[in-house]
């Protein structure tokens, strides 16, 4: 399993659209993907929009992305990049 820390940078946080983009990207990989709120036991399935929204992530929130499976390296690279890019939002 690989993990990578990331920080939410987009102004409006992790609302439906970013959660949707994240799950769409996560679904391209066979690895099991999850997001944890750094420093807590709160974890959500990285392929569930509703699950990701329950985390209540706002700008500045620190997260830990985990990927486990055959394509975990590619998955974690792509997903960390997506979060760090602010999901293409300003």
């Amino acid at each position: 399993m690989l993990t990578r820390e990331a920080v939410i940078v987009n102004e409006s946080g992790f609302h439906i659209r970013p959660a949707q983009l994240f799950t769409e990207q996560a679904a391209k990989f066979t690895s099991k993907i999850s997001i944890a709120v750094k420093g807590t036991n709160t974890v959500a399935d990285g392929k569930s929009i509703l699950g990701l929204m329950t985390l209540g992530l706002a700008k500045g929130s620190e997260i830990v992305i985990s990927a486990e499976g055959a394509d975990e390296q590619e998955a974690i690279d792509a997903l960390a990049e997506l979060v760090q890019s602010g999901f293409g939002e300003a």
Partner: peptide
Amino acid sequence: GNEHLQILIALSRKLI
């Protein structure tokens, strides 16, 4: 701020 985001989060925490 992000009132609609707070409402979305509250709703999603129930719908899950």
